[in-house]
């Protein structure tokens, strides 16, 4: 059974780690998930949680996952946006937890945009 004492131990471990995540870091890649009513209804919550879990698992210190309101294309929800420093923003649509994990491994880690999930692919 988990207790808050365990949380204290995790905190102490993390405090000693160098390079804790900082949102203001110019090296940071930001992943943003649309979490308005339309996004939530379409399945944004498990997408967000898959992203957070994967970033934690892979210990990606320069990646943050944030939430935003309506991105304005409700029929394409769940939508995520990836903003890497010095790169153009990439918008992924109709996300699932599985696709989101692929975005982490392909795009975030290996630097290859997953074109098949972008809005451009949908409109072709």
């Amino acid at each position: 059974m988990k207790s808050l004492a365990e949380l204290e131990a995790i905190k102490n471990r993390m405090k000693n780690q160098v390079g804790m995540r900082k949102d203001d870091d110019t090296n940071t890649t930001r992943i943003v998930v649309g979490m308005a009513t339309c996004g939530i209804a379409a399945g944004a919550r498990p997408v967000l949680n898959a992203l957070v879990e994967e970033v934690g698992k892979r210990n990606l210190a320069h990646v943050t996952v944030a939430q935003t309101g309506c991105i304005g294309m409700c029929k394409f929800e769940p939508i995520i946006e990836v903003m890497a420093p010095g790169k153009e923003k990439v918008t992924y649509i109709k996300m699932t937890p599985e696709k989101a994990i692929k975005v982490i491994s392909e795009h975030i880690v290996n630097g290859r945009v997953c074109n098949e999930f972008t809005i451009g692919a949908e409109q072709e």
Binding site: K2, E6, L7, I10, K11, M14, M20, R21, N49, V52, E53, V55, G56, K57, V65
Partner: peptide, 9 residues
């Protein structure tokens, strides 16, 4: 922090 969130879940 993701580590904390995963623990909290």
């Amino acid at each position: 922090q993701p580590e904390i969130i995963v623990w909290l879940v």
